[in-house]
Nucleic acid binder design. Structure first.
Lengths: 243, 243
DNA sequence: CAGTGGTCTAGACCACCCA
DNA sequence: GGGTGGTCTAGACCACTGC
């Protein structure tokens, strides 16, 4: 059982900077204090400050100009989605400035389909839990998330009440597993009947499909997702630095 | 005029590691030498090696386990798209292991539309160049890219012959500008007539739309793009590390 | 326990930008 | 020229893993 480690200093520095940007102490378009000043003020090394700044610059929140300084990106307020949030729907909605809410549609235990057996590297006749959830932003349905979790992974029964947790917390709590990385496919599809009614979209309106496969540190597939994303309600907008 | 700087050592180390992984000197699923060994072998500091490893781990190419070692991700071969390549279509196709080819459909000079004026922060009646290009992967059309570039940005006339360069090189050469970051929207749409015929897709088949806005270091919009991406031909598949 | 990756420091040199 | 960010080094301490 790993001990609870304190949040790394570099992350704390990121948090502080984000908070200062959010509160407009560092206003859009303006220049931040230099790396040396920040290091001195916060009592950390310049390398640590740089690590924090690099993260925020990669997300497009900051612009760094050699020989000049680090600036708050004034266009970033238009960008709801931080990179790395694409597959974490709760954070995705939260970062867009809206109130996320998760509704459990249903939780079904059944044997895995052929496709799921291959996908999740399971043995024949394996049991899975199908978790259907609806993500709402400010009360408006945005994403219909369908997750398939092998029953063998869970060390305690899973109840519908717990469906409102972010998926990584569910896996943490019920399977004691950490997500290491995700592979996901983005495609354009026509919504099926369930998606149409739950997301309140029309039959002729194309919509985004996000298929995800989550792995742990041991590089074994944990579970997968097949979600439908209504990009009309919450734009899938990303910022990305060149380098 | 900036001098030509040598590629940073950390990037060179990344390149070496990627090459060793590609050549299966570091085979899928196997463990890499430790950071200290790599640092010693390559004659660089551990911090530099770590910087290179971190990049590859963020892309999902490597898996790092504290107290254990760094492993080659065996599932990563399924992932054509490296993060950061979404908006660079040439690299995107290249990284998928296919042969990229750019065909210029047409190059048109005209006055900007109302929408473009706002989008690119231009003055009334401003001239723009509309650059329509088709990206092919192994000869198959994948992406129809439509870029709008303000004429004022270009310091020499633009000819259709040059249309086969990656967009950042066009901007570099004709406007002497560096792209700093990009904001892009991903949406599902039905292809218009041009996209249907050029991408050879059917009227009932939804398709991905990628709208991009490119900024320079001064945080001024350089140009924008409105592209159509046939995800049936080249899957938009990404890998992303958890942290 | 030894070795691994995770974190952090202090210091150095450089290219670049602006005044 | 003076300050900025970009890069790199050497060394330290830690938590974690596997033996």
């Amino acid at each position: 059982m790993p001990v609870e480690r304190p949040r790394p200093i570099a992350h704390q520095v990121s948090d502080i900077l984000v908070e200062r940007i959010r509160s407009e102490e560092y206003a859009p378009g303006l220049r931040l204090p230099s790396e040396n000043l920040l290091a001195e003020e916060l009592g950390v090394s310049r390398a640590t400050v740089r690590s924090a700044l690099a993260r925020l610059a990669a997300e497009g929140l900051l612009l760094r100009k050699q020989g000049d300084g680090t600036y708050v990106n004034q266009h970033i307020t238009e960008v709801p989605t931080r990179l790395g949030g694409i597959w974490n729907f709760y954070r995705l909605i939260e970062q867009s400035g809206r109130m996320p809410l998760i509704e459990t549609i249903n939780v079904t235990a059944r044997t895995a389909t052929e496709e799921e057996l291959v996908e999740l590297a399971l043995e024949e006749e394996a049991e899975v839990v199908a978790l259907h959830r609806l993500f709402l932003a400010d009360g408006v349905p945005v994403i219909l998330a369908r997750n398939i979790i092998p029953t063998a992974l869970l060390n305690q029964p899973f109840t519908a009440n717990e469906g409102t947790l972010p998926i990584e917390q569910i896996v943490q709590r019920y399977a004691n597993k950490q997500i290491s990385y995700v592979i996901f496919d983005i495609a354009a599809i026509m919504p099926d009947a369930a998606a149409q009614s739950l997301l309140n979209c029309s039959v002729s309106q194309p919509i985004l499909s996000l298929k995800q496969k989550f792995y742990d540190k041991q590089n074994t597939p944990l579970f997968c997702g097949d979600s439908v994303y209504n990009d009309r309600v919450l734009g899938l907008r990303l910022a990305q630095a060149w380098n």
